[in-house]
Nucleic acid binder design. Sequence first.
DNA 1: ATTGTATATCACCATGCGGTGACACTGGGT
DNA 2: ACCCAGTGTCACCGCATGGTGATATACAAT
Lengths: 200, 200
Amino acid sequence: MQRDSEKTRQRILTGLEKLITREGFIGVGVNAVAREAGVDKVLIYRYFGSMEGLLKAFADEKKFCPRLKDLFDDMPEGTPLHEIATRIVIEHARALQNSPLAQELVCWELTELNPLTVLFGKEMEKGELKALADRGIIPDDDVVTLSVIVLCGLQYLILRGRNNNPMMDIDYSKPEIRKKVEKVIASMMKAFFEAGEGSL
Amino acid sequence: MQRDSEKTRQRILTGLEKLITREGFIGVGVNAVAREAGVDKVLIYRYFGSMEGLLKAFADEKKFCPRLKDLFDDMPEGTPLHEIATRIVIEHARALQNSPLAQELVCWELTELNPLTVLFGKEMEKGELKALADRGIIPDDDVVTLSVIVLCGLQYLILRGRNNNPMMDIDYSKPEIRKKVEKVIASMMKAFFEAGEGSL
DNA sequence: ATTGTATATCACCATGCGGTGACACTGGGT
DNA sequence: ACCCAGTGTCACCGCATGGTGATATACAAT
């Protein structure tokens, strides 16, 4: 074995990542990670203290949070609020769709709290809030509440799709369905926004 | 021990139910169920063949699906479509909120497919479709798509709330938050519906 | 009362888990 | 050359799990 502690640490961390991605968060444990990383499990204790420590380190050091495409590029000045909100939500969903690891973490977060799931949740939330704030959307606006609900809905649908278990035939991985869903959300946001303009 | 096979069967089934409700679906297994039911685990194999068989029997024989309050009572003739959709979604969320067992099953369904989660999912879906169809809402309407998305969003928020891990401070178990969310959904539905009337 | 069958109990197995102690190697500082 | 801290290997423990075979008990039919 190569005698390089830093390399070994990394092997363990990426072992954890591969394991979660391939097998899901259930069954993640010291033995499984060590096996996946091709490393004796005692090294996990040596370098991370415990499984909890490993999860925390993973949360701290890995960039597991799906990166949102920078939306400023193709959103011209003066884009209406509802289009911005729509874009953020849909872009977020796309990012999640493309990251099996993130999907697994979102699901894990619903099941159990541990250093990884907690930090992951905070990270996601921070990203959301930033995306909104960067575009001047006030956090306690009704538009935000609505966006969060819809976003959660898409997350749920994506999670359902993972196991080929779509909800009400809404399989978000199918492009035509996604198109339809995105269209509905867009027009809903528009309607909500314009109605709000008048009634508030 | 009382020698009554039917009673023992029931003890096992309600043992499973109590176990899931109290401890969550993780860790559900032959040993745990037998312990909870105060029964030798060999009886599980005798009566249900396997853990899978027990799950299937549980899905078949227990009424775990949260019952929707009958909405016909206080919905007068001619209630507009968006109010109907809103009511269905919100009522569904309320039912889920009041059933820790159902919450656990919804979460389980996102994690793993087994006879119980699959049958549970079908049951829920059937309930949804019926609630919609009973009120003359066509399944492939955009209103349905939107309703499903919002419903999924609420389900997700409720699941997040379980472990005191609210999403974006939207803790759906808090009445004032729920009120606000319901209000947003109602006005959104109204706006979407009315906009649709004009544009379609 | 005897027998037979359904029911319940017990003891056990192999496996996998989290966790730990003892040992072996490697390489750099003195 | 020696030592020693850092690193990796191995063997082991206690425990819980899923699963099974042999045995004891209750009860109903004869």
